Simulated scan of single mutants.
Amino acid sequence: MKTRQQAADGFYRHLREWFTAFLPRQRGAAENTITSCRQTWNMLLGYVAEHHHIGVEKVTFTMVDRVTVTGFLEHMRATKSWTPSTYNQRLACIRSFFTYAAAAEPTLTIYLADLAAIPRLKAPAAAPVKYMSTDAVTALLAAPDPGTRIGLRDQFFMILMYDLAARDAEMLAMTLADIDTRRLTVDLLGKGSKPRRLPITSETAQHFGRYAAVFHPSPEPATPMFYTRRNHRPTRMSDDNVARLIRQHAATAKARCPDVPARIHPHMLRHSRAMHLYQAGMPLALLTEWLGHADPETTLIYAHADTEMKRHALEKANSATTRSPLPTPLWHDREDIIQRLCGLKE
């Protein structure tokens, strides 16, 4: 039985309508966007409940105030290493709900005004994109033991992610129907639900065959490509699971290859593949399509970051100068010409 305060507050009624009606139908938000918002609210509600020492089902509008939301965001920055970009995206998600609730029920505008006082974080100057050398990638992909069930899964996940230069969310959204081993292609659903089809190597297709034989012995097209079992049912792997497995295998790989960075995140595989494709000669326009970038300017980070290509060009230019010495000046060993140039002789 609801308390009078909860009934008057209507917090969860508005939140349900925001997720089930507003985001998918009115706003037309992509599935990945809705998933990201759901993750944000799951974390926030857990934090609010713990902060107020109550059950999650008892959270109300008054509890999700500026101080609590700021505390939540700062807590996640400290514990999850949220970047300013992630911080601002999560804050925008929370404000979006309050904007919807205030429009539906004007008396709730006071809560939106309270959250409006939370400042966005100023992003630092963009750092050069971090990527791994081909030796480091090779060591990382060889780290899992394919003789074990988990090792087989982890190795194929990283191989496919690198081969496609795919985002973490794109990998986790894949189903069995998305891979075609006959045509050697994979269909990905990128940001904004924009599909793209990418080629894979025959070696990657062979890895898929071995993986599918163990994890999908009775294949169903709609089954998640990568899953964990909950209540004896396959459910999509989480991004936390992916980050954990990559950190684990990176530690193993670094013992064999010093080039492996001390800190690796899943997106670094995407950056590494993109950089290697660019260094191999792929034009930026094609690389933009491959990566699914809506703005070609985004892809320029790989051109700016490719100091190795610039260094090789500089070394090539210097070696050419060394092989072709400058011609001897006309005035070399000619004292009379030097005197004329200096005005000492007519």
Rank of each mutant, 00 (worst) to 15 (best):
V242H: 02
F226I: 03
A303K: 14
T185S: 13
M63Q: 11
P325E: 09
L286C: 08
R27W: 00
E105A: 02
R334W: 03
I264H: 04
D114Y: 15
A101S: 05
T201W: 13
M161D: 11
D145L: 00
R4N: 07
A113R: 07
R4K: 14
V260G: 13
A317H: 10
Q39F: 09
T288N: 06
C257G: 08
D178A: 12
H52P: 02
F61Y: 07
Y227K: 01
V67K: 06
L344E: 01
T204L: 09
H271N: 13
R323M: 08
L300I: 03
L176A: 02
A125K: 06
A30I: 01
F215C: 00
E220H: 14
I159W: 03
L44D: 12
V64G: 01
Q248S: 09
S272A: 13
I94Y: 11
T60S: 02
A294F: 00
Y302D: 06
L121C: 01
D163Y: 11
A126M: 05
A78C: 04
A262F: 10
R25D: 04
R247N: 06
A142E: 14
N318A: 07
L287D: 15
V59P: 00
A116N: 07
P234F: 02
K80L: 09
Y47S: 14
S238Y: 13
D168S: 11
H249Y: 15
D114I: 08
I338M: 01
H312V: 10
K58N: 10
T99C: 07
H207D: 12
L198T: 11
S324W: 12
I338F: 00
P124K: 03
E315K: 13
S319W: 07
L15T: 12
D9G: 02
M171V: 13
T99V: 13
H265K: 06
H312S: 08
E203W: 13
W290R: 09
E346Y: 00
R38A: 08
F11M: 02
T148H: 06
L344D: 00
Y162S: 15
M1C: 03
V186Q: 15
L15R: 07
E31F: 04
A7E: 01
L23A: 00
A255S: 14
H232Y: 12
L164H: 11
T134A: 05
Y111S: 02
Y278A: 05
L300T: 11
A294V: 02
Y111F: 11
T235V: 06
Q5W: 02
E57R: 08
Q279L: 12
R247F: 09
Q39I: 14
A285Q: 07
P199L: 14
G55N: 15
L164N: 14
H249R: 09
D114S: 08
G192A: 09
P195R: 04
K310L: 11
G292F: 05
M282D: 11
E57P: 03
E315F: 07
P195M: 13
R90H: 11
T252F: 12
P283R: 02
M309C: 12
P128Q: 10
A136C: 15
S81E: 09
A280F: 13
P261W: 06
F11W: 03
Y278D: 14
E74K: 15
S324I: 10
Q279A: 10
